[in-house]
Amino acid sequence: MTAAELSPLTLISGPEEVLVERELTSLVGRARDAAMEVVRIDAAGYEPGSLLMHASPSLFGGATFIIVRGLHEASDELQDDLLSLLAAPAEDVFLLVTHASGQRGKRVLDALKKQRARVVTCPAIKNDRDKSDFVQQEFSRARRRISSDGVRALVEAVGRDVSELAAACAQLIADTEGLVTEAVVDTYHGGKVDATGFRVADAAIAGNTPEALRLLRHAIASGLDPVPIVAVLASQLRGLIKVGSAGRGSPEQLASSVGMAPWQVKRARAALSHWSSEGLATALQAVAAADFAVKGGGRDPVYAVERAILTITGARSSA
């Protein structure tokens, strides 16, 4: 591979660290293969002028590959240096800039785009669908197949952190053969559940006591603090009460008056059919008591949350 195959200007834009890192590694590898000198510059600790120093021709000849990380937090000096470098491109200098998000460094972005830099986008992987797509891509890149059950199980088990998900994919690809199914994923990640306060609250409000307690235990075991769990319980119950007392009207109309998103209103309405207002009152009071208990009012925070969950599910079934 020769230096000519690398684009002289590259912009990696997007906040997803895993993807940025992966692109960087492959580009740096290619630059090293082409015997280029690789220089890394971190925007946070930039000293004015050092960019131009690295870009100036070396006595020993040879090309330089300069990586500027974090244009989104670049100081004005760095931006100015980048602009002057872009205005007078030096020969044998390959520039790569990463930019997560935001308005900062917009002048440099515009200049890069104007000079037809190669742009690699690394969009944030947020919801479960993004994560599933990511897993599918990982497997198809390695020319492997994974069943949709397998994808779901994998995302559920290690989906909280994208880099963890990527590592899990790499492990499965390296260690297994053939189609990856749910059973295969279970062999590696069985019994691990990515429990959040929201899932605990959903189970509790749906009246599913065993599931809610199981998720709570998972959440605590994987390092979640009881305090945010109680906060989520409170906000979900509050939402139910608000929607319940707001009367009729389309979810869109209600959404603004109760300060929730339309889909939240719809879900709250569906849940409300199993709740009486008296039950909601009992539930919310139990949550307030639990909040006091987890903040030092009681001896055992986990017990306090468990008790609140039992009260909540009890208040629902009695309705």
Binding site: L284, V287, A288
Partner: peptide, 16 residues
């Protein structure tokens, strides 16, 4: 009042 003093979010304590 006691709960708010103990750092319970005021809104939640007031609701209860």
């Amino acid at each position: 009042r006691e709960r708010i003093n103990a750092n319970v979010p005021p809104l939640l304590a007031l609701e209860a």
